[in-house]
Structures are given as structure tokens and as C-alpha cells.
């Protein structure tokens, strides 16, 4: 069926007072095979990251846990680095830090974007103009380099890194939330609540926001992956937190020794790749569940 045909069919259904057959959310999600794959990978990686210290066979910072620069062999399945530290244990530990930065920055920027976009979309007029102008400015300046500057000037602590990445990523969220608010604000159910005497707070938090959450959640999932990649990029340029070794910091350290020990870069990078890929796949799957319109395509 062509897209236009599908749209017409969707419109026709929307106008008819029929009750859609109830399909459990997880089934819509699982129908998308790649999304299910992503969810399974995450179901392995997240416990590995959280329980890393208990699961890892060695202390990640223990020097001479094995022979230095040894390739993958039992019990060092990912090999060892130049100081004889166990790469697998370090990867598990680094994954924890990378996911922490990913989720931290994504929640931070989503919160910021929801506030800015919500205020702009709900109040409209000059507040909207002002906030959207600021958002546009943030979209034009090269944000990765702004992040580099922020971290270089204020110090490479994990909080500064999370903050810098959040500053880089909120404009997209703000735009999505604003357009949702603009369209929801004018819907009948919101008018009904307004006529019934609902306060502004009720309108925003009980009527509009819950209905705007679909795209926000999808976007948030994708942001976690993007934040992990940004953190890796910053770390690679030497701006990682030296006290909390993330996967990005591992890749930077490996730059010096990878010519003789490929495993020191291959495995940490593979781990970022798997995590980000799964997050992107899960994001697509959530999009199918939460934004039914896009499912038809």
C-alpha cells in the first residue's frame, strides 16, 4: 500500500467510532525484530555494568593482574593492557561509567528541553519567540567544540562532562516538546479541562504533559546513545574524568599501544558500539509503540 493510501485509511479509521483491538505494548515492540534484539543486548549489558565489580574476575585497576600486553586468553578473555590490567574487568567498569554519563546527560538534557519547550509551547507569543531564538542559536554554534571548551575550562570531572553534554543536547528536545505542546494546547480535551476550571498547573502537568511524553521518551532513549558517543569523543581528546575510567578513556589510553595490542581498543569500542546500537534499536521500537502514526509507514 502506498503511503498516501495508508494515510487515507488511517484517517478513515480515526473518524469512525470503532474501538481499536487491544494490542499489548510489548507485542508491538516485539513485532519489530531488531528492537527486540536491542532490548536483549541491553538486558545483558546493563546488569554487566551495574554488577561489574562483582562479576569481573579481577580488580579493574589492579596492575599486573596478568602478564602485560597479553592477547585474549583464559582467564583474561579480552587480554591485558601495558600494565597487565585485565581488559575485560576494565571494560565492565568502563561500561558502568559510560552508561552513567549517557543516562545522566540524557535525563538532564531531557529535563531542560521539556521545561524550555513546554514553557515556549504553552505560553506562546513573545516567550515562545525568545526561547526559540535561544534554541536556534544553540543549534547553530558547533556544540561539540563548546563542550570541549566547557570541560577544558572547568575541569574534566564526571559532573562537568554530564553537564556539558546536556548543554549540547537539549535543543532537539525543546523543539519536539514545543511542537507537541502547541498542538495539544488547542485540542478539545484541553479546552474542556480549561472550561471546567482547571488551573494552569493541572492543564500543564495532568492534561498536556502526559500526552507529550511519547516523543520525549523515544528521543531520550536515542539521547543516551548520543551522549555515550559524545563522552567517548571528549575522552578521546583527553577530556575524560581521570578518576573514573570510561570506555572512551580506555580508547584514548589504547591509542598509544594499539599497534601491538589491538584488543585494548577493539573490545572497549565494540562495547560502546553494541550499547549505542541497542539503544538506537530500542528507541525505534519504542517509537512504534508510542507514536502509532509512524507505525503505518
Amino acid at each position: 500500500m502506498s503511503t498516501a493510501g495508508a494515510m487515507q485509511a488511517a484517517e478513515a479509521t480515526a473518524q469512525m467510532p470503532v474501538i481499536a483491538p487491544h494490542v499489548p505494548a510489548w507485542r508491538i515492540f516485539a513485532r519489530n525484530g531488531t528492537a527486540a534484539f536491542g532490548a536483549i543486548v541491553l538486558a545483558v549489558l546493563i546488569p554487566l555494568a551495574v554488577l561489574g565489580p562483582f562479576l569481573a574476575p579481577f580488580d579493574p585497576s589492579r596492575v599486573n593482574a596478568g602478564p602485560p600486553m597479553a592477547g585474549p586468553h583464559w582467564p583474561h578473555v579480552f587480554g591485558t593492557d601495558d600494565l597487565g590490567r585485565d581488559v575485560f574487568s576494565r571494560v565492565a567498569d568502563g561500561l558502568r561509567v559510560s552508561l552513567l554519563v549517557g543516562f545522566g546527560a540524557a535525563s538532564f538534557s531531557t529535563g531542560l528541553g521539556v521545561v524550555v519547550g513546554g514553557v515556549a509551547g504553552f505560553f506562546g507569543r513573545f516567550i515562545d519567540d525568545l526561547l526559540m531564538r535561544i534554541t536556534e542559536i544553540f543549534q547553530v554554534i558547533p556544540r561539540f567544540f563548546l563542550g570541549v571548551l566547557l570541560v577544558a575550562f572547568f575541569g574534566a570531572s564526571i559532573f562537568n562532562i554530564i553537564f556539558a553534554i546536556a548543554i549540547l543536547s537539549w535543543p532537539e528536545v525543546a523543539r519536539v516538546v514545543r511542537s507537541e505542546f502547541l498542538s495539544l494546547r488547542a485540542r478539545q480535551f484541553v479546552d474542556a479541562a480549561r472550561v471546567a476550571g482547571a488551573s494552569r498547573r493541572t492543564l500543564i502537568f495532568s492534561e498536556i504533559l502526559p500526552n507529550a511524553m511519547g516523543p520525549v521518551v523515544v528521543n531520550g532513549t536515542l539521547l543516551v546513545g548520543q551522549a555515550m558517543l559524545l563522552e567517548a569523543g571528549l575522552s578521546y581528546l583527553g577530556l575524560g574524568d581521570p578518576s573514573l575510567v570510561s570506555l572512551g578513556v580506555m580508547l584514548q589510553e589504547a591509542q598509544q599501544i594499539m599497534r601491538t595490542a589491538w584488543w585494548t581498543t577493539a573490545f572497549p569500542g565494540l562495547m560502546i558500539f553494541l550499547a549505542v546500537l541497542s539503544l538506537n534499536l530500542v528507541g525505534d521500537g519504542l517509537n512504534d509503540v508510542l507514536n502509532p502514526r509512524s507505525r503505518e509507514r
Binding site: G225, L229, A232, G233, Y236, L251, G269, F273
Partner: peptide, 11 residues
């Protein structure tokens, strides 16, 4: 879209 570009370079 999902891999660090510099890691791909290293590999």
C-alpha cells in the same frame, strides 16, 4: 551511526 568515529579509525 552507532559507533565512535575515531574507534572505527583505530580499527
Amino acid at each position: 551511526y552507532s559507533m565512535p568515529v575515531f574507534w572505527l579509525g583505530q580499527i
